[in-house]
Design a protein around this nucleic acid. Structure first.
Lengths: 201, 201
DNA sequence: CCCCGGCCATGACAACTGTCATGGCGCAGT
DNA sequence: ACTGCGCCATGACAGTTGTCATGGCCGGGG
């Protein structure tokens, strides 16, 4: 019997995945949580063999939760299940100690298998996504550039970003300019979009 | 036996929902499709009683598919199941003839009930979302303004938008300015974000 | 009929944005 | 010690954006 924990902020999806996996005779969902913050506590309480974590969650995201689990419960293996197959997500997930990475448009029949493989100590990675991750490469953005781009996501003008980050407006413009150049964009908005698409934010 | 059709582009979610609903003794999933374009054909082929449609799908979105179903198979009731509880989505879904509207963070246990209610001819609408929809009101944007804002989503400069829409740059700026004013934004990017959040695009 | 509102356009102005050159500070690697 | 690089800052310039006034064209409602 493989014991599972599910973490996904969408209750309906969480419940549905639970139903799906519950159909398998050798799988058993022992805990469900709706935010990344609850993951560690739930794992310590229920000792699942495998934790299925969504990336997009309130509080700690799935990748951060995976990293926290590596510390708190190294025996629990992590399978990331996410909507977006962004190259940067995969890379960061693996660095955080995840054993598998599955996108939500893989066929439902394959999920149970992925869980079993992860439980058996194997790595599970969508091959198409892995190659994407290779070609896209690691984020070229420095820490500050990333931070400034994040602050620019909501369309704030330079002045607001500068105030929020306690920087001068000129510095913000420089970082943005660098980010625009590195992302191949011509534009702040474009830079945000491509950085997000690559999982760099 | 209530016969169901599921439409969701994420195969894993689709399969999981199928498993969840399949647990109910009085429900039966008779068809699953992964895009809005396939909905009408699948409904005509399998005659489900209720169609569960996701809004975000390639091809026809769930709302457009609901409208198409009203024409092609008026006996099949539509329950929209979506990630985003955007006021405009709800309004447009109801106008398109949907009988119910459920957000993906409602508890899994309630979905089957929602299906039964819809099948019984009742309307199912999240009350919190309904009030949101009332306060947010209908889109204040004119057709052109909407179109221009859509074209601005990817961060294109005015010149590119003008070229794509065969308008003069000045006109595009005027429409954008109007949209910015109506959305309460100070900014093109902000205007895009709030318009999207309200389901106006 | 006349007026209002949506739509298109032009032109002008102020504000914001993106780029570049330049310089200082600190930290790592050679 | 020197070099390279990230980070912060300033100032200047050209290009883009947002606003406003103005005007023409059309269709619907009073």
């Amino acid at each position: 019997m493989i014991r599972l924990l599910l973490a996904d902020d969408q209750a309906l999806v969480r419940g549905a995945l639970s139903a799906l996996l519950g159909l398998e005779p050798d799988l058993e969902v022992v805990a469900e949580v709706g935010s990344g913050d609850e993951v560690v506590a739930a794992v310590l309480a229920h000792h699942p063999d495998v934790a299925l974590l969504d990336v997009e969650m309130p509080g700690l995201d799935g990748i951060a939760a995976a990293a926290a689990l590596r510390q708190a419960a190294p025996d629990t293996r992590v399978l990331i299940v996410t909507t977006f197959g962004r190259p940067g997500y995969l890379r960061r997930a693996l660095q955080a100690g995840a054993s598998g990475f599955v996108v939500k448009d893989t066929p439902a029949a394959q999920l149970a298998d992925a869980v079993r493989r992860v439980h058996a100590g194997l790595r599970v990675v969508d091959p198409a996504l892995a190659t994407d991750s290779l070609v896209a490469g690691d984020s070229p953005l420095t820490a500050r550039e990333t931070e400034v781009l994040q602050a620019a996501r909501d369309g704030s003008p330079v002045a607001a970003i500068a105030a929020r980050l306690f920087l001068s407006e000129g510095t913000v413009r420089n970082h943005l300019s660098a980010a625009i150049g590195k992302t191949g964009a011509t534009n702040r908005a474009e830079a945000v979009i491509t950085a997000e698409g690559n999982g760099w934010l």
